[in-house]
Design a protein around this nucleic acid. Structure first.
Lengths: 336, 336
DNA sequence: CGAGCGGATGTTATCGACAACATCCGCGTC
DNA sequence: GACGCGGATGTTGTCGATAACATCCGCTCG
């Protein structure tokens, strides 16, 4: 590596002087303009490298108003699903030359959401990627004066024809089909908060798959994704209705359900099958190990981010769908 | 809320015109200069509000070179500990008027780390906050030409006298004392990767507490934080040495250990006590529920970020220490 | 052989803020 | 009443890039 002067960072003018060209030629080179003679181009390249030149993004942004930052609106970064989605989105952003500004919502109130958007706008992000997929967030985003693309709820906020990624619904379906295939006929579900789109999608998929067989969920209990809420749901589960299978909308709640059932003397999987969603790293190491539907969260993040970037850059969306979720069968389910 | 024109955002010139003053007066107002007559100040305030003016941070940064962004260097955002630390750091940053740019490391190689730092430098962050506390990261950060403050490994990279937050060592100590108090005398530990400082700190605390009683760990197995590595360690645990207690450096590994022991016919807590660290949300709902040492990760994040910000702003560090970790006793430990 | 053309490059203006210097004005002083 | 002083405000320059417009030059073509 060349010795880099630690003093003031070099500017395009320094580069231009070193290369014996005008600063504009350097600017053109930087922006990938191809009408530059190979010889000139070479001199610029050498100068850039030897000076350790790095463009000043503030200056670029000020003049051109093209930002290379994308805002991510999140809560619950300590939940595995959202964290992985952000991670996937982050990678896709990086690959496309963007940086992610993560903004975490403190609360669920409108003001906190609105403040977050204001903050991102002030930071001049090129687009917003919302993992916080609640009705609230969506409503606030929709009514907020927006001059930048926003991705939320599996699709662009502006787009009409954008295919939503149907994988959450699909996950519910997979869980239902798994239980049905094992011979279960009376099933309950513990959902996430109903104001989350994911929750509704997973529930819908589950219910739809049952409906095909002329069945409906025997009980629908609403949780909040936490193990505790799963535990509470497990305690309330009306077992006298002959329920033999439970679909929990994430693994944490599934685990709480299993715990509660245990305390009630109901053995899993002997008396009751339980299926979760997420395939958290510990799922295989619980007792009983947890059958679960695995979603490729990072791929979902890639997908979302690629849609957003396509919109930002004004391209059409040649974005590849994320793969379908599938069942990982372990010990918490068994045939009946 | 006032009607905000969605056209071009207002500049200080627009505000100046609306207020009938010069743009410089507006600039002075924005920077909190107090030699402005109340009457003039009032007019500026009204103009700002009615135009919905927001300062252009790019222009400000270009001219003044004062950035309001802080880079966070992370991996493993899907692990609870690091995620919470970042969350805490994020909140502290927000309160001080900074935004967090999260950069996740793809791998553990030097190039990936170095690239990340370059990226952050290019983004002109005011400081770097590294959650990725491995020797590698530290080494690369240290040798990197740095003109901005960096926080890593519980202290400022530059500072000599900065008190490190000793809470990880303390956590190991708490676990050891808990097991000792229950009458255990022969104990093993499953550590995190030894190139993580946290891992070494937790191990040191554990070993030191034993040493006070003239004891040493009967076995030290290195894991990688994952449940699987805990499981593997549990399978390798030399039980014929009379071990009755295991300290796992996080809950995920603890859970893997318990699973492995179960498969080997060793009951927890009847035959073996197991203590983890983190108090993950599901700890209370496992079977057996997990005794664990709880650290206040968000407070650690606050602490770290406040140190960093103090350094950035050239203030001395009046930063409050994060609270000590403490034992949460559940079913995976029992007296002997 | 000069006009015209178009590709390569140079010159000047501009983005929106902060910084440095200039000016204005009221008031006390001699 | 001219002078000076200092607080309040205005004017001009600057940060480092891009954008718009200008120029230069070699080549083709009528």
């Amino acid at each position: 590596m060349d010795p880099v002067t630690v003093g003031k960072p070099a500017t395009i003018y320094d580069v231009a002087r070193a290369a014996g060209v005008s600063h504009q030629t350097v600017s053109r080179y930087l922006r990938g303009y191809d009408g530059i003679r190979p010889q000139t181009r070479g001199r610029v390249e050498v100068a850039i490298k030897s000076l350790g030149y790095r463009p000043n993004l503030a200056a670029r942004l000020l003049r051109s108003r093209t930002s290379t930052r994308i805002g991510a609106l999140a809560h619950e970064m300590s939940e595995m699903g959202p964290a992985r989605v952000v991670q996937g989105a982050y990678q896709a952003a990086r690959r496309a030359g963007y940086v992610l500004d993560v903004v975490m919502l403190d609360g669920y109130d409108d003001k906190s959401i609105s403040d977050a958007i204001d903050l991102l706008t002030e930071q001049q992000v090129a687009g917003i990627f919302a993992t916080a997929q609640t009705d609230r967030v969506k409503a606030v985003l929709e009514q907020h004066p927006r001059n930048i693309p926003i991705f939320i709820d599996s699709r662009m906020l502006t787009t009409v024809d954008g295919r939503p990624s149907p994988n959450n619904e699909f996950a519910g379906r997979v869980a239902a089909e798994a239980l049905l295939a094992l011979g279960h006929r009376t099933m309950a579900t513990v959902t996430g908060p109903m104001e989350w789109h994911v929750s509704r999608d997973r529930l819908d998929g589950f219910a739809d798959a049952l409906a095909i067989h002329g069945l409906t969920p025997a009980a629908v209990l609403e949780g909040d994704w936490s193990p505790r809420s799963g535990y509470e749901a497990g305690m309330l589960l009306p077992i006298d209705t002959g329920i033999t299978g439970v679909f929990a909308a994430n693994d944490h709640m599934a685990l709480g359900v299993i715990r509660a059932l245990g305390e009630r003397g109901i053995r899993v999987p002997h008396d009751m099958s339980v299926v979760g969603v997420d395939d958290i790293p510990e799922a295989a190491f619980l007792t009983p190990s947890l059958s679960t539907v695995r979603l490729d969260f990072e791929a979902e993040g890639h997908y979302a981010m690629n849609c957003l970037i396509a919109e930002i850059e004004g391209r059409s969306t040649p974005v590849e769908d994320p793969p379908h979720p599938f069942l990982v069968e372990r010990d918490s389910t068994r045939s009946r």
